[in-house]
Amino acid sequence: MSHNPASTKPNKLQRIVSKCYSLPAALQSFALTTVFGRVIKFAGTAGVEVLELKGSRSVLRLKNRKKAQNHIGSVHAAATGLLAESATGFLVGIHLPDSKLPLLKQMQIDYVKRSTGDLTAVASLTDAQVTAMHTDDKGEVTVAVTITDSTGIEPVNANMTWAWIPKKR
């Protein structure tokens, strides 16, 4: 059975994101970032920015600012993990029906190179993963996320596994 996102009722987060995209293009990222920072306070504190959240893809950025740096002046390892978690979690969040609760089950992050400058995370879901979120009461998905720095290298390899369960009524 093929999943058609247009045939499912948008969840609360999806409705808010749609409103952000109805704004002029110059305001969309700011509006998405503001909403995200209110929902996920830690990400807002760290300065995670939402550049894109459409369909089965999200693009988030974390600028290399003092509040997110480590002792060598690059983005802190924990902040890098937060960026990967945010990019995948926000994407899962717009697809999961309101009747289900998302839970981060596993973070796998291999730090392979020192990063330079800002970090950008791109996360994506497959059609099969989106379908499972709508049809299965409980389940999990491992969300692919690619993180690149300002020079275009990938300083980390990351996978985030998100589970969902029915919300208690």
Rank of each mutant, 00 (worst) to 15 (best):
Arg65Cys: 15
Arg65Val: 15
Arg65Ile: 15
Lys66Leu: 15
Lys66Tyr: 14
Lys66Thr: 14
Lys66Asn: 14
Lys66Val: 14
Lys66His: 13
Lys66Pro: 14
Lys66Cys: 13
Lys67Ile: 13
Lys67Arg: 13
Lys67Ser: 14
Lys67His: 12
Lys67Val: 13
Ala68Leu: 05
Ala68Glu: 04
Ala68Gly: 02
Ala68Ser: 14
Ala68Cys: 04
Ala68Lys: 01
Gln69Pro: 03
Gln69Thr: 08
Gln69Leu: 04
Gln69Cys: 06
Asn70Pro: 13
Asn70Arg: 10
Asn70Gly: 14
His71Gln: 15
His71Met: 10
His71Ile: 10
His71Pro: 10
Ile72Phe: 11
Ile72Lys: 07
Ile72Glu: 07
Ile72Gln: 08
Ile72Val: 15
Ile72Trp: 14
Ile72Pro: 04
Gly73Tyr: 08
Gly73Val: 08
Gly73Asp: 08
Gly73Glu: 03
Gly73Ser: 11
Ser74Gly: 10
Ser74Cys: 12
Ser74Glu: 12
Val75Phe: 08
His76Met: 06
His76Ala: 02
His76Trp: 12
His76Leu: 05
His76Pro: 07
Ala77Glu: 05
Ala78Val: 09
Ala78Leu: 09
Ala78His: 05
Ala78Pro: 02
Ala78Phe: 00
Ala78Glu: 01
Ala79Lys: 03
Ala79Arg: 01
Ala79Tyr: 00
Ala79Gly: 12
Thr80Gly: 08
Thr80Gln: 08
Thr80Pro: 00
Thr80Val: 11
Gly81Glu: 05
Gly81Asp: 01
Gly81Ala: 13
Gly81Ser: 12
Leu82Asp: 01
Leu82Asn: 10
Leu82Lys: 06
Leu82Met: 15
Leu82Arg: 09
Leu82Ser: 10
Leu82Ile: 09
Leu83Thr: 01
Leu83Glu: 10
Leu83Ala: 06
Leu83Asn: 03
Leu83Ser: 05
Leu83Trp: 04
Leu83Gly: 06
Ala84Tyr: 09
Ala84Lys: 09
Ala84Glu: 06
Ala84Ile: 01
Ala84Trp: 04
Ala84Asp: 09
Ala84Gln: 09
Glu85Met: 08
Glu85Cys: 06
Glu85Ile: 13
Glu85Ser: 11
Ser86Ile: 10
Ser86Glu: 09
Ser86Ala: 13
Ser86Thr: 14
Ser86Phe: 04
Ala87His: 11
Ala87Asp: 14
Thr88His: 09
Thr88Gly: 03
Thr88Arg: 07
Thr88Lys: 07
Gly89Pro: 03
Gly89Tyr: 02
Gly89Trp: 04
Phe90His: 05
Phe90Ile: 15
Leu91Asn: 00
Leu91Lys: 02
Leu91Pro: 00
Leu91Glu: 01
Leu91Ala: 05
Val92Ile: 11
Val92Thr: 06
Val92Lys: 00
Val92Trp: 00
Val92His: 03
Gly93Arg: 01
Gly93Lys: 06
Gly93Asp: 04
Gly93Tyr: 03
Gly93Cys: 07
Ile94Cys: 02
Ile94Trp: 02
Ile94Gln: 02
Ile94Thr: 13
